[in-house]
C-alpha cells in the first residue's frame, strides 16, 4: 500500500472541492434567506391565496404539477380554493393575476434556491406582454417618422 499518501491526498482534494460552495458562502458572509414577506402586486378584491401561505411557500410546485396534470391530461380545468370559491387551475390566469410581480414574488426565491423552473418558457407573463407591447409601439412610432 505505498499509494496510501496519494489516496489520502486525493480524498482531501475531493472533499475540499465538494464542499466548496459551503466555504465560498462562509467566506463571503452569505446569510440564509430571511423569511421575507413578499407583497403581491395586484390583489383586486382578494386577500387570500388559494391555499394557506405556509403550504404555498413550500408546496406550490406540487399544487402546480397537480393542476397541470389535471388540466392538460383530463381537461379538468376548475377547482375550489381553500375557502370554497371556484377557481381556474391556471398559472397565467389565476396565479399570475395576483402575483403579477414575478421578479419580486417568484424570481427572488427561485434565484436564491438556484432553481430555474421553465414555466415561463411558454406561459406568458402579463408584464412581459405589456413590455413587448410598448416596445412595439415605440418601434411603430420610429418607423413612422
Amino acid at each position: 500500500m505505498n499509494d496510501k499518501g496519494k489516496i489520502v491526498l486525493g480524498l482531501i482534494v475531493f472533499l475540499v472541492i465538494m464542499t466548496f460552495p459551503m466555504w465560498y458562502n462562509f467566506i463571503n458572509g452569505v446569510v440564509p434567506f430571511e423569511d421575507a414577506v413578499v407583497q403581491t402586486a395586484n390583489t383586486p378584491g382578494k386577500d387570500k391565496c388559494v391555499r394557506a401561505a405556509d403550504y404555498m411557500r413550500t408546496q406550490h410546485m406540487d399544487l402546480l404539477n397537480e393542476w397541470r396534470q389535471e388540466v392538460v391530461r383530463n381537461g379538468d380545468r376548475y377547482t375550489e380554493d381553500a375557502y370554497g370559491n371556484k377557481i381556474e387551475k391556471s398559472l397565467s390566469n389565476t396565479c399570475m393575476d395576483c402575483h403579477s410581480n414575478k421578479e419580486e414574488f417568484c424570481d427572488r426565491c427561485h434565484n436564491y434556491m438556484a432553481v430555474a423552473p421553465y414555466c415561463w418558457d411558454c406561459h406568458v407573463l402579463p408584464a412581459e406582454v405589456q413590455q413587448a407591447d410598448m416596445a412595439l409601439k415605440v418601434d411603430a412610432t420610429e418607423g413612422n417618422e
Binding site: 397565467s92 390566469n93 421553465y118 411558454c122 406582454v129 413587448a132
Partner: peptide
C-alpha cells in the same frame, strides 16, 4: 419570431418551447 416580426403574444395561451 414574435419579437422579430413584432407580433403580440396572446397572453391567454402559452407559446411552446
Amino acid at each position: 419570431y414574435f419579437a422579430e416580426k413584432g407580433i403580440q403574444i396572446e397572453p391567454d395561451f402559452p407559446t411552446r418551447t
